[in-house]
Simulated scan of single mutants.
Amino acid sequence: MPLILKATPSRSGCSRSRRRRTTRTAPGPGPERSAGSPWRDEVDSCLVTSITDPATADFVFCWPLYRRGTDVYVQNAAVFLGELADAFRPTEPWLSVEPRGTVDEDGNEISEWRTTIDEVRAFLSAHP
């Protein structure tokens, strides 16, 4: 099933921030993919879907994006800010996302969907 990301009008740079987070997962082909660059075939990022004031919020809802080769796995997650080892950074929310898991601590399968890097790039091209 393809991932559909909806571009919506945003406040104070949210659109730029969303693009930066998505681009982190889906860089274009070219010299930026050279050895030693940050653009690898395994990259974790996220899109924040809901947050109040980060200074007073207890949690953040987000969609972690886990790129594995040409596949991008998307999950729904709540990040509990009081449980983080380091302060939440709104400009780098992927630093607070757990590594990809497919089974939770109770042995239940974690719901996720798969899309492709080409579909993410198509979204970025359609919503500059």
Score class of each variant (00 low, 15 high):
T115R: 06
R114E: 12
D106W: 12
A77T: 07
T91P: 03
A87C: 08
A26T: 05
P93M: 08
K6T: 13
F123K: 01
D41S: 13
E92I: 08
N108M: 09
P2K: 02
M1P: 12
V72C: 06
D86S: 11
R114A: 09
F80A: 05
G36Y: 10
W113Q: 13
V120F: 05
T22W: 05
D44V: 12
R24H: 07
T70I: 08
R67D: 09
D106M: 11
R11I: 15
R121M: 03
C62A: 15
R100V: 02
E32F: 02
D106S: 14
L84R: 13
C46Y: 03
D71P: 03
T22K: 00
G69Q: 01
E105I: 07
R16E: 13
R21Y: 09
L95W: 02
P31H: 11
T22G: 00
V79P: 10
A85C: 02
Q75T: 15
R33S: 06
K6I: 14
E92L: 12
V48I: 15
S12F: 13
V97W: 02
R89H: 06
I51H: 08
E112H: 13
D104Q: 10
G30E: 07
S111Q: 09
P38R: 04
R21M: 12
A57V: 06
V74H: 06
R11S: 14
D106C: 11
I110M: 09
W94K: 01
I4S: 03
T22Q: 06
G69V: 04
M1H: 10
P2R: 00
I110F: 02
E83H: 02
S45A: 08
T70P: 03
F123L: 01
R21S: 12
F123A: 02
